[in-house]
């Protein structure tokens, strides 16, 4: 199994264990979208720290997870993008919107705890 998906309260956490083929990426996307619909989850966390490469295909799949989840009122956070992968995404000019990113699982869950409709406090 290349992806471990576990449920934690109102959230699904998908932990990618190794590089994925396109077929596996699409299976993960469909699986997550289906689960969000079925369990009315509020959020999805996808841990991509095991991915050495995020190209346009993987980026598009991650975005479609986020877009589909958003339609069902859930938010998606990507955690663990490796430094070199982050540089590659930027140079490639891949668009990850509306994906949120966080450093690790704790950060991602904290981010999801913030209500989406809450206007961010601005000190200025």
């Amino acid at each position: 199994m290349s992806v471990a998906i576990l449920r934690k309260g109102e959230y699904f956490i998908a932990s990618i264990q190794s590089d994925l083929s396109d077929t596996e990426v699409l299976a993960l996307r469909d699986d997550l979208i289906e689960r969000v619909g079925r369990f009315r989850a509020l959020g999805i966390v996808v841990d991509v720290s095991a991915l050495d490469v995020i190209d346009s295909f993987a980026a598009r799949a991650l975005r479609s997870i986020a877009l589909a989840a958003k339609l069902r009122g859930a938010r998606t956070v990507i955690v663990g993008i490796q430094p070199d992968v982050a540089v590659a995404i930027v140079q490639f000019r891949l668009n990850l919107d509306p994906l949120r990113t966080a450093l690790d699982l704790d950060e991602a869950l904290a981010l999801l705890e913030l209500r989406p409709e809450r206007k961010p406090a601005d000190g200025r």
Partner: peptide
């Protein structure tokens, strides 16, 4: 600019 953007992707 790219470094700032990459940092953001990592969650910082």
């Amino acid at each position: 600019v790219q470094t700032v953007e990459a940092a953001r992707l990592m969650g910082a």
